[in-house]
Design a binder for these strands. Structure first.
Lengths: 159, 159
DNA sequence: TATTGTTATACTCTATAACTATA
DNA sequence: TATAGTTATAGAGTATAACAATA
């Protein structure tokens, strides 16, 4: 019975992760570039260093993603007033238009998914999901420690 | 309020999709190879053609993934009795051991996440999640159609 | 000396196209 | 002629390491 809920959660995961990206994947937009674009839309003009930290990715990676977004006209590299090493990745009008569309789509989706659910169902859903999220974090942290322990134990034992 | 639930769902998505993979990412296992290994564990010895369909990926891709799993000793290519063109991707003892561990981990995780939740909370969670999943499928299908329509309309309009 | 962003290089995952061996 | 799997090639996304310009 427990695995039924987890199976469904995994299925939602699949759909959100893959098909939502496919939804916007046109005109040179890829998942990673969309992610970066979304971050710039949320935070405003940002240095590549800041974006690297935000996306948990190396600065070298940001160079490539920004190159792609510049080529397709969604962002531009602007000089950083006060630090001539840095560049500010900035939305172009076209980038602003697209991210605005995406925000509307996001809100519409949330409304369509949850808008007409019974208030009580929505509340318990949100509540339980929060609990699940917390537990999941603990589980993953523990599993990571176990995995590290096993790797240390068996590291030289079965080549 | 609706977006709060969606935000949490997205966060769970992140954790399940990325960190669960990281949990097993050692000894040459990558997400895609783990996915293939999991499929072989579920379905038994399978031809690469069948695996390509199961993973929604090209046969060429399966070649590379199986190469990796053979190199790290989790599967072997066995001849197909009755079709000398085909090979049967088969778990080695080591592959069987790992996938068994993974299954236990999966069940343990489900138990740890949902096992001691109040029965009513678990029931409503499962129920609402099922509804959400169905709606999400409809939403994505519609959004895809809208996106196609927009692409057709604006295709030659704003280069 | 430290930091920002780049070039150089490599690996994984994915795709299409052309090809070989079998069916 | 069709199918199973391969080689050849290409592109996205990721990483480390070495380097230039600037702080």
């Amino acid at each position: 019975m427990e695995t039924d809920a987890l199976d469904r959660l995994l299925a939602v995961t699949q759909l959100l992760g893959e098909d939502m990206n496919a939804m916007f994947a046109r005109e040179g937009l890829t998942p990673a570039r969309t992610h970066l674009l979304w971050e710039v839309a949320r935070q405003g003009p940002s240095t590549q260093r800041v974006l690297a930290d935000a996306l948990s990715v190396t600065p070298r990676n940001i160079t490539g993603l920004v190159d792609g977004l510049v080529a397709s006209g969604f962002v531009s590299r602007e000089p950083h007033a006060g630090d001539r090493r840095a560049t500010l990745v900035t939305l172009t009008p076209r980038g602003l238009e697209l991210t605005t569309q995406m925000q509307h789509g996001y809100i519409d989706l949330a409304g369509a998914l949850f808008g007409d659910l019974p208030a009580e169902a929505l509340r318990s859903f949100t509540e339980v999901l929060g609990t699940v999220l917390d537990r999941l974090r603990i589980q993953i942290a523990e599993a990571g420690q176990i995995a590290e322990g096993q790797a240390a134990e068996t590291g030289a034992g079965h080549g």
